[in-house]
Write a protein that binds this DNA or RNA. Structure first.
Lengths: 262, 262
DNA sequence: CGGATTCTTGAAGATTTTCAATGGGGGTGG
DNA sequence: CCACCCCCATTGAAAATCTTCAAGAATCCG
């Protein structure tokens, strides 16, 4: 459906047998940022069975109608959550990066009502539902961070409703850039107000409810105003405060450490 | 901020001491629709402490910035979830009805990033976080229905992103009506393709990302096409199949019983 | 190096907004 | 019980934002 784009070239995943213990580290880091984890919890998580796999840009990890029996933990690359609508229209409702388990909801939502697609080449590792359920049964307090993770995603959806529903194009794009910079900074994938931004203008259009033509013109305006630089799939933000102001961005909904949003 | 609208006049709530056991029945019914509940679970839920209260139309149950120590279970009336944006703009991201615990996420999200406001007069009963946490600790498998409930809400947010982002006004409104009819039918508040629809055209505008003027004109067109009747805060759907078609409505995301969507 | 995808720009057109003014309805108070 | 008043609904006309269509340039990838 989508053309292939091979922007990142992650090393081929290690065979599972040799490095399982290291694979799930991004998950531990993510959960740590959501609650306190005991050493015993961390061990249990790291011992989850995990089956790494490479997806090429444009491929779907999970598709609408699927009834998954596993969740994908993203280790490298970008994933987008999207719906296909009538007349060939598409709406993206989220972007996910390393450390995210974008289809965690499938644990309690049997049938997928949308797709998860690879924006770039993606390395992900699958964890059987069964193993996750067993983990939660043995460590019931782990419900908190997992549940909370899905709640933060829900808070982001709400913000996107407001973004798409009520902000004009310029502000809408600015807001998306603020969010995606912070989301990456929170897990160490961005700093110094520069970060990867690998999606095409068509992807940006489908995430903001605009057309790629209008995204193009809006990006031109934002560059003219020295609000952003964007080339070679890298975003640079010369003046964070000014971008935040232009976006009317309030990071509360991301539930981050206060330090990050400074 | 919002004008008061007193459309429904629910009976004054019973004093807590006399009827606590009955109060929480809507919650049990809701959870039953999400998983199997044992008799023991149901008892435990019904014994949760609950403090009923009446909100007048236009009042907020919870406001942005709050750090709730309790959740509100709606017993009667309509609640909307909304954000206030710059320039006096507003975006509604959800509507909730009897049986919903709209602020359940506050259990794991300390600070509110949006408001919950009463669309009509609302009867709700508050349940302390502490009591809910204790319940979940003693009955760990109750995590499933509660978590699942917040996941269905998240699925609805995603659909709203698509609705607001990619559908034209006519289809967008039609889609909202389909969703709200089914949402009410699922808990016995609607049948025979007619249901309450108590929000103003301004509310509908803020839910769909349009202006009230355009909502007005779009409603006129929908009435002209005999797609809906809407007066005295009641919606009538003369031909459900035709409305579904006009909306390109696919109920999968609501995770309902198959029967209901027929 | 070649083909395909993505980016860019112009011009015309559609949808939706804004501004403004009138009419209607229900709740409150006299 | 009636009248008033405020909100809400309705409609017209003009304007803005964004889309569509189309074509050429740049970039990426194999």
């Amino acid at each position: 459906m989508q053309p292939l784009r091979h922007r990142f070239h992650p090393a081929a995943p290690e065979p599972m047998s040799t490095a399982t213990d290291q694979q799930l580290l991004p998950l531990v880091r993510k959960l740590r940022s959501l609650t306190h984890l005991s050493a015993r919890d961390e061990e249990a998580i790291l011992r989850l069975p995990a089956f790494p796999r490479l997806f090429r840009a444009g491929q779907d990890l999970v598709s609408e109608g699927d009834r998954p029996t596993q969740c994908w933990l993203i280790l490298q690359g970008w994933v987008q959550r999207y719906k296909l609508l009538g007349g060939g229209k598409r709406q993206i409702s989220a972007f996910h990066v390393a450390g995210d388990m974008a289809d965690l909801p499938s644990l309690h939502m049997p049938v997928m009502d949308h797709n998860l697609g690879a924006v770039t080449d993606v390395t992900a590792t699958s964890i059987p539902h069964e193993a996750l359920r067993e983990l939660l049964e043995r460590h019931p307090h782990l419900h908190a961070p997992f549940w909370r993770d899905t709640l933060v995603d829900a808070a982001i959806f709400r913000e996107w409703v407001a973004n798409v529903g009520r902000r004009p194009a310029y502000q809408r794009l600015a807001h998306l850039f603020c969010e995606l910079y912070l989301k990456q900074a929170a897990v160490g994938l961005a700093q110094d107000h520069r970060c990867p931004m690998p999606m095409t203008q068509m992807d940006l259009a489908d995430a903001t409810g605009l057309t790629s033509v209008h995204i193009n013109r809006t990006l031109r305006d934002m560059r003219r105003d020295k609000l952003i630089e964007l080339r070679s799939r890298m975003l640079v933000i010369p003046d964070w405060a000014r971008l935040v102001e232009a976006a009317e961005f309030n990071p509360t909904y991301l539930q981050l450490d206060a330090r990050l949003a400074a």
